[in-house]
Each structure stands twice: as structure tokens, then as C-alpha cells.
Simulated assay, not measured.
Amino acid sequence: MSLKRFICYGGQIILTVAEHHSAIVPWQFVSQKTGATLKYVGLTKEEVPDIDQLKSLLSNKTKIVVVHHVSNVLGSMLPIEEIVTWSNKVGAKVLVDACQSVPHMAVDVQKLGADFLVASSHKMCGPTGVGFLHSKFEILSSMEPFLGGGEMIADVFQDRSTYAEPPSRFEAGTPAIGEAIGLGAAIDYLSHIGMDQIHEYEKELATYLYETLNSVPNVRIYGPSPSQTGHRAPLCSFNVENVHPTDIAEILDLQHGVAVRSGHHCAQILHRTLGINASARASLHFYNTKEEVDVFIHALKDTIDFLTSQH
């Protein structure tokens, strides 16, 4: 059984409007090929995905639920264990995008219980072009390979082939050996520091970033405050009234040597839901400090003054 066969005509795929494009576009492909329908969970007034709405959408038609663990725009965190419990009751699988959580906190995949969990290397201080998929062995064993080639077969005959056990059956061709070794080294590096230690430090850093940025006049931060959720990822997506986020990012870079990202952050549906085309995003990791946040805030104020004085 492949996922495409599992998600048949009349089935439903549930996502949230806050998903990264990489967690939306593949399911649009699946929907087009199978006739399944896509259902999107909206936001609450606190600008987090509406978990009550997600729960209400679940039915025996639901085949898979695709959700992020931590949002790359809102900085919010979803209750994955609860979502898995609700989804399993109606026979639905759960795929978790953990790209924004695995590098920043201890993630117990057994405890979460998701059927699939994915993360990327470059978010974990590792090389680009590689990541990982964690899944239950019995599910992978029931699925057909989606690529053909070397390394993924058991035996090849003139008219048919048999496939290797997972994970080999899904890794046709020569693997990204160097990248995988680099990812392993990055995991060892993060583990040596301690994921719990990284998480506690970043929680403090995230609150400091939010509070200092929120004190800047005419700044609008998207997503919940740390006090609303008790946890917020160390990032802030924001806009400044009457100033384009790309202008902010360019001036911060060119004049102050401060790097932020501007654009839709591969989350156009979310930005449309928020009523904006783009935002600027300041992101932190364990190697950043409060002093660097202060440098960013000072540079941002200078940048806003410069840009607004041009009007």
C-alpha cells in the first residue's frame, strides 16, 4: 500500500494555513492524482492554528493530517500528542513537520506517536540537501517505493523486482553519503551541548526578543506572545507600519550587518490569512545572545528612522 493508494477518491487531507510550502505542495499533487480533498484549519484570534477546528474536521473520511510542530512564521507550537490521539481514533495517519522543533528542543518521537516525522539538516547546523524521515516500520513495510534504481531492491528479474526492507527501499541510487555523515556530526554536536539546555536558553532568548521588539513603536509581531502560550520559538515575524519588510532587511544588512529574512517565508497561505504579502523575520539559535538582540533592536530603530524620514 502506497500513500497515494491509501488516500483514495473521497478521502480528506487536513492541513493548517500555517504550513510551509514543502508540507502543502506535495499534498496538492496527491490530491490531484487521487481526487482527495484538502481541508485547511484556520487561525484563532491569538494567531495560532485553531485546534478545536482541526478536531471538528476529523472524520472517517480523513486519511492523513499534516501539521507543523513549531511554526516558522508564528513561533507557535502545536499539541502533537493530542492531534495524534484524535486522528488515530478516526483511522487517520499524522505527518509532523518537525524542521523547526528538532534543532531547538528534545523531541521524543516515540512519545509524540506520529506516523511520520520529518526534519532537515541545515536547520540543525548540518549540511544542506539532506534531512530525515522517521516512521513506524510496519507502515514503511506496507508502502511501495516511489523511485526505482540501485540499492532499493532485493532481487531483479526480467519482468519484476522485489524490494529491500525499509529504509533501503526508499533510497534508490547512491545516497548523499557526505551530507548524511555531516548530519550525523551535527546531531552529535547538538546532543553534546544538550537539547534540554539549548531549549531552556532559547526560551529565555525568545522572550527577550519578543519583548524588546514589541517595545519598538509601530512594529506588529505575528503569532502569540510568550505569556499566551508559555512557549514561543526564538523567532519573530513582524512588519513596521508603512515600511516594506524588504527595505528593512536590505538596510539592516547593508548599513548594520544584521541579517533578517524578508518575504513570505514559504508560507504564502499564512500571509494571506494574516492579510499581508510579506514580513520580516528575525531568527535566533543557541549561538545568539541577548547582546546581539540589542544590536538588532538598535539597528532596527535606526533603519525605521532612516526609511520613514525618506517619505
Rank of each mutant, 00 (worst) to 15 (best):
A180E: 06
L183T: 05
L190G: 11
S191L: 14
A180D: 06
G150N: 09
E171G: 02
T162E: 10
P167N: 08
S161I: 11
A186V: 09
D155V: 13
I187W: 06
I153V: 11
S161V: 13
G150K: 08
E171L: 10
A180W: 02
E171P: 06
A185I: 12
G178N: 09
A164W: 07
S191V: 11
R169A: 02
G149S: 04
Q158A: 15
A180F: 04
P166Q: 00
I181T: 05
V156E: 12
Y189L: 15
T162Q: 11
A154I: 10
A172W: 01
G150Q: 08
D159M: 15
R169I: 04
G148A: 09
G184M: 09
G148W: 09
F157D: 11
L190Q: 13
I181K: 06
S191F: 12
Y189F: 15
R160W: 13
A176N: 08
E179Y: 01
I177T: 03
A172Q: 02
G149R: 01
G149K: 03
I177K: 03
E165Q: 09
F170V: 00
G150F: 02
D155Y: 13
G149Q: 04
G173S: 05
G184C: 07
S161A: 14
T174S: 08
I153L: 12
M152D: 02
Q158P: 14
F170Y: 01
L190E: 11
A164I: 08
A154W: 11
A180Q: 08
D155L: 15
R160G: 14
M152A: 05
I181N: 01
F170Q: 00
E179N: 05
P167Q: 06
